[in-house]
């Protein structure tokens, strides 16, 4: 547990891409998602929330956001938005504007329904087992396949 921190920025960042089902909010993502996130933060002003709710498409058209991202925002496809550089703390202003609990919004990013997700959390949450490393998971799968053969 007690190693010295990695000092090489490239290695440091590369490791982040090895975590299953996770987009770490790096510079690359922050830059890509800049306007998606600035839009989301605009939901903190009541006036903006009202204007957005009155005509979502028209409000989105005021922002320098790709058509793809606008579509993802309209259908609340949060995984697609994470891929486009959205960050969950920014996007959560949209959950809030929608009046949806944070955990319910999180469930939409998983392969579970909201009741299934809620039950998983009550049962102790998602286990880290098998969820730590894409590399390790692939190695384990390869080893298992070889054992079978």
């Amino acid at each position: 547990m007690a190693e010295k921190p990695t000092q090489n920025i490239h290695e440091y960042l590369a490791e982040f891409e090895d975590i299953p089902g996770t987009r770490v909010y790096t510079a690359v993502r922050a830059r890509k998602g800049y306007w998606i996130n600035q839009f989301a933060m605009s939901m903190m002003q009541p006036e903006n929330r009202e204007r957005f709710k009155a005509d979502q498409r028209a409000y989105l058209d005021e922002w320098d956001i790709s058509e793809e991202a606008k579509q993802a925002l309209l259908r609340r496809d949060y995984n697609a938005l994470l891929d486009m550089g959205g960050n969950v703390y920014f996007l959560s202003k949209l959950f809030s504007a929608d009046g949806i609990p944070f955990a319910e919004a999180c469930s939409t990013m998983t392969d579970m329904t909201w009741p299934e997700y809620r039950q998983m959390m009550l049962d102790g949450g998602r286990s880290p087992e098998g969820n730590r490393s894409i590399r390790e998971n692939l190695a384990a799968a390869a080893a298992a396949a070889q054992n079978k053969a």
Binding site: A2, G21, T22, R23, N79, L82, F102, C106
Partner: peptide
């Protein structure tokens, strides 16, 4: 974890080890 397909991850064992380390008189944490 609040994002992506891995949302909902919790780690009781690790968290408690972290609390143990905070109580310790070394600074490994």
């Amino acid at each position: 974890q609040l994002q992506g397909p891995r949302a909902g991850l919790l780690n009781r064992e690790w968290d408690n080890r972290f609390l143990d380390m905070l109580e310790s008189d070394n600074d490994d944490v």
